[in-house]
Computed example of a mutant assay.
Amino acid sequence: MRLQIIDLDAGVAAQEPLRRRIDAGAATRIDAADLACRLRIVASRGALQSLASRLKPAAGGSSEPCVTFYGSGDFHHLTAGLVAAVEGDVTIVHFDNHPDWVRFPATVNCGAWVNRALELPQVRKVVTIGPCSDDLVRPELQFANLDAVADGRIALFPWRHAPSRVWGRYGATASYRQQGGHLHWRNLADEDWDAFLDELVAAIPTRAVWLTIDKDVLGPQDACTNWDQGQMPLGYLLAAVERLAGARAIAGIDVCGDWSQPRFRDPFRAGLAFFDHPKAVTPTPDALARNGAVNEALIGCFERVLS
C-alpha cells in the first residue's frame, strides 16, 4: 500500500506512528497547512483545486491502493475528492458517528460530503456504519437525504439509536423498517457482528470498495476527536476492515477524526464550528495518545490486509 499524510492541522503528522514512517520514507507528507482555514468545515473551490494539485505528484502513477490520513473530522469532505480519482464503479463503506448526508446547503462540507460523493458517476452506493448521534433525531428537519436511503443509494446502520420521527413515507430497507411516523433502525450493537459483516459483503454491488473512517465512530476510551463520539469498539472496526479487504478489492482508504484546535480566518466557518461542535475541551496528553495508538492499530491492520 501507499501511505500519505495530508498535514492540514498538525493533528497526525507529528504523531509517533506516522512521524516515524515519514522519517523512514515509508509515508509521504503533503504540506497543506496554508489551506486548512479554507478547507475546514466548508471547502472553497480554490483550496480544493490547490490541494488536488499537491496530491497528484505524490501519487506518481502508482497503482497501489493509497491510505490517507488527514487529521480532524472537520475535513471529512476531502473523501469525495479522493474517491473522484477512482476508475470504475466503487462502493464507499463509511464508518462514522454521523451520517454526513445533509442536502442543504449543497456545498462541499463535512456534514454533506456523502451527497457530493453520490454525485460522482463511479460511486454506486454509500454504506454508513456506526452512527449514534442526534443527526437521526427528526432527520427531515436536519435536511437528511432520506430519499437516497429509501432508494438504496445510502444504507445506514446505526450502532445504537432510537427510532427516528419522520413525516414522509420511506418504506423499509435492510437497515430499517417504518412503522407509522418512525423509522426503526437496526441496532448493530445488538446483532452478531460476524453475521452482519457477511450480510454487508453480500450486499455490496461492486468489486471495488473505498473505506473511509472517522474515528468519532469509536468511544472516548479509544479516540479523542473534535466531535461527539459513538460507541463502536475498536476491535469491531478492525474486524470489519479485515473482512471487507478479504472479500473485495480495496480502491483506497482515508482516515480522519484526530483532534486539533480549530482555527479560522473568517466568521462564517467559525460560526459553523461553534454551533456544530460539542463544547470545546482541551484534551490531556493521555487522551491524545489514544489517537496515536488507534492509528498504529489501523495502519497495522491496513498493512496486513493490503500486503
Rank of each mutant, 00 (worst) to 15 (best):
M1V: 11
Q4F: 04
G11E: 05
V12K: 00
E16C: 07
A33T: 08
A33R: 15
A36K: 06
R45L: 11
A47S: 06
S50M: 08
A52W: 12
G60P: 05
G60Q: 05
S63D: 13
V67F: 07
T68C: 12
F75N: 00
L78K: 01
L78V: 02
L82T: 02
A84W: 00
A85T: 14
T91F: 04
V93F: 01
W101D: 15
A106H: 10
T107V: 03
C110W: 03
A112Y: 10
A117W: 01
L120P: 06
P131G: 07
D135T: 01
P139D: 11
F143W: 14
N145V: 06
A155T: 02
S164R: 06
W167L: 14
G168L: 03
T173A: 06
Q178Y: 14
H182N: 06
H182Y: 13
N187H: 12
W193G: 03
W193S: 07
D194P: 06
A202T: 09
A208F: 02
T212A: 15
T212D: 12
A223T: 03
C224V: 04
M232F: 03
G235M: 07
E242L: 01
R243I: 01
A245W: 11
C256R: 09
D258H: 15
R263F: 11
F264V: 09
G271T: 12
F275A: 08
V281D: 01
T282E: 13
N291Y: 09
